[in-house]
Computed example of a mutant assay.
Amino acid sequence: MKTKIVSTSDQRTANNAVRHAYRTLSDTEKAQMQEVKDMGAAFIAKLHEIGGTDTGGDRFASRDLSLANTHAEDAVMRAVRHITA
């Protein structure tokens, strides 16, 4: 049985407004989640490089790069949701 963590616990995921209970992740799942997030961050950094914008900012050089960023963020979120489900 997988361990659940109550949403009011300090161990909850701070940015998840939907789940009310969380399970403890395995070391493999934690590594997968970190890798997916690192890949997303690297892709978003590349978008800033392509557009010549500040990597610490949220502005992109074009609508297309902004949409690519949005889709990258969505892809990372959905992969993490799969890992943590």
Rank of each mutant, 00 (worst) to 15 (best):
F60Y: 14
M33F: 00
G51K: 03
T53Q: 02
T28A: 14
H48T: 04
S26H: 05
G56M: 03
G40L: 07
N69E: 14
I44R: 12
M1R: 01
T8Q: 04
T28G: 04
Q11T: 00
V80K: 01
R12C: 07
E49Y: 00
N15W: 00
S66E: 15
A41C: 01
A21I: 09
G52D: 06
S26D: 10
S66F: 12
K46E: 15
K30M: 09
E29L: 04
M39K: 15
R81M: 09
N69M: 11
R59W: 02
M33D: 12
V36A: 12
L25S: 06
S7W: 14
M1V: 06
R23W: 04
A45K: 13
L47F: 02
G51P: 00
S66D: 14
I50P: 06
V76D: 05
T28C: 06
T53D: 09
L47E: 07
L67K: 15
H20F: 10
N69Y: 11
N15V: 02
D74F: 04
S66C: 09
V36C: 06
H82F: 11
D38C: 01
L47P: 04
A79K: 08
R59Y: 06
R63C: 04
E73T: 05
A75H: 09
F60T: 07
L25I: 01
T70Q: 13
V6W: 06
I83D: 08
Q11H: 10
K46I: 01
A79N: 03
A21Q: 12
K37Q: 15
R19V: 02
H71W: 11
V76P: 11
A31T: 07
A75L: 14
A17P: 12
G56D: 13
V76G: 03
K2P: 15
G52Q: 02
L47W: 03
L47T: 01
R81E: 13
N69K: 13
T84V: 12
F43H: 11
G52L: 03
Q11P: 00
S7E: 15
S62D: 11
A14I: 04
E49C: 01
K37L: 05
T8A: 09
F60G: 10
A17D: 13
S66H: 14
M33A: 15
H20W: 04
E29H: 03
I44M: 12
G40D: 09
N15A: 13
A17C: 05
D54Y: 06
N69G: 06
A79V: 10
S66N: 14
R78I: 05
A41Q: 14
H71E: 13
K30Q: 14
A41P: 06
L65Q: 08
M1P: 08
A45P: 00
V76W: 03
D58C: 07
I5G: 00
A79M: 12
M1F: 05
A79T: 05
D10S: 08
Q11N: 12
I50D: 15
K46D: 14
A42Q: 08
T84R: 14
E35N: 09
V76C: 08
F60H: 07
F60V: 07
